[in-house]
Amino acid sequence: MWLPIMGLVIGVIIGLLTDIKIPEEYSNYLSIAILAALDTLFGGIRAQLQNIYDEKVFVSGFFFNIVLAASLAFLGVHLGVDLYLAAVFAFGVRLFQNIAVIRRIILTKWSTTSEK
């Protein structure tokens, strides 16, 4: 359980220590990619809690979502339409749904354990 959190912390520390910066114009793509990644992460946590977790689905979904979101943003920039908003919307909604589901599962688990 603690290993993923460790991984997150290690990633943040590495990112801050190496002082990597991407050009200003690509920060849009990275932000949308982060959103997609977070969505996948929370989706994975939810699946874990619902016991329908599949590693292949999770890993492939992670990379595929990132690439899809970034390419959608890229297409939007070239079409002159803010297409990345669609990705933001979709991922945002799913993020909220996933978190809500996680909350409910944890709440039910907690209430069942307290009843015992």
């Binding site: 990633g11 943040v12 999770f58």
Partner: peptide, 10 residues
């Protein structure tokens, strides 16, 4: 994957 996300966020 969590580490990758952390890196991206950083």
């Amino acid at each position: 994957i969590a580490a990758i996300i952390g890196l991206m966020v950083a």
